[in-house]
């Protein structure tokens, strides 16, 4: 067996050269490309991580915004609810006031209508009573009725204080006669009696004349030049109506 040292040396050099050649033409380009791809992947990873972080930040911002919107919505709802409750309370108070005012007005109206109805009823009752009394009085003989009226007139005139009576006498002593108005025509006999009794109460110079006014219902009125003495039911009824109306408005 022979060992060729030159072949050994050449193969050693050959392999060393091959190592350099493969390093130059194979490993270095491939590793450079692998490194570049890895760097690209790392860059894309970093970019993806950055995008992920940005997305997370945006997500957090959106979530915070949503939370803010929810809080704002809740606050707005709460405020709206409070305003609605306040408005409802105010409307309720206003409605209570309006209802109270309406009730008060209704009560007043009812009371006024009741008073008015009472006045009307009293008037009607007065008219009815006057009508009934007039009918009943119509059944009484004229002489009796006239006697009652003239007695009342005499009592009034007799009861007058002297100065007032003198004033009436002075009025009736002139040229104008004292006119006696009755609700119905008095018989001539009764007229004569009334004339004499009035002259006796006033004075001899008094002229007495008679007239008829059915509106008087009953009784008589003495029409002097400057005064009217009323002894009729018309005046009494008018006084009563005035009293009734005064009571009704006062009540």
């Amino acid at each position: 067996m022979h060992f060729d040292w030159s072949t050994f040396a050449l193969q050693t050099v050959n392999f060393a050269v091959l190592v350099w050649l493969l390093h130059r033409f194979l490993y270095r380009p491939v590793l450079r490309m692998v490194d570049a791809r890895r760097a690209e992947i790392d860059r894309q990873y970093a970019e993806a991580g950055k995008c992920e972080a940005q997305a997370k930040d945006r997500l957090n911002a959106v979530e915070a915004e949503q939370a803010g919107i929810a809080a704002e919505r809740s606050a707005a709802l709460k405020e709206a609810k409070a305003q609605a409750e306040q408005a409802a309370a105010e409307r309720r108070v206003q409605a209570d006031h309006e209802a109270d005012a309406f009730l008060e007005n209704a009560r007043k109206t009812l009371a006024a209508e009741r008073r008015q109805a009472l006045v009307e009823a009293r008037r009607a009752a007065l008219d009815l009573g006057a009508e009934i009394a007039g009918r009943l009085l119509a059944e009484v003989p004229v002489k009796l009725r006239a006697e009652a009226w003239i007695e009342r007139i005499e009592q009034y005139l007799a009861g007058l204080p002297r100065p007032e009576k003198d004033a009436l006498i002075q009025q009736s002593a002139g040229c104008a006669p004292v006119k006696v108005i009755t609700a119905s025509k008095l018989p001539a006999e009764v007229e004569g009696d009334w004339r004499s009794r009035l002259i006796r109460q006033l004075c001899d110079k008094v002229l007495v004349d008679f007239g008829v006014d059915p509106a008087l219902v009953a009784g008589a009125e003495l029409h002097l030049p400057n005064a009217v003495l009323r002894f009729s039911w018309q005046s009494a009824l008018a006084a009563m109506r005035a009293e009734i109306e005064a009571d009704g408005y006062a009540g």
């Binding site: 030159s6 050449l10 050959n14 050269v17 091959l18 493969l22 194979l26 791809r37």
Partner: peptide, 30 residues
């Protein structure tokens, strides 16, 4: 220096490997 057959064969292998490496690595892309 005597050049033997293994040396020549080695040169041929080196040539093939080098040319092959150069041809496959000259247009590397990402």
């Amino acid at each position: 220096v005597a050049v033997t057959r293994p040396v020549v064969t080695t040169w041929a292998i080196m040539l093939v490997l080098t040319c092959g490496s150069w041809s496959v690595t000259r247009r590397l892309t990402l």
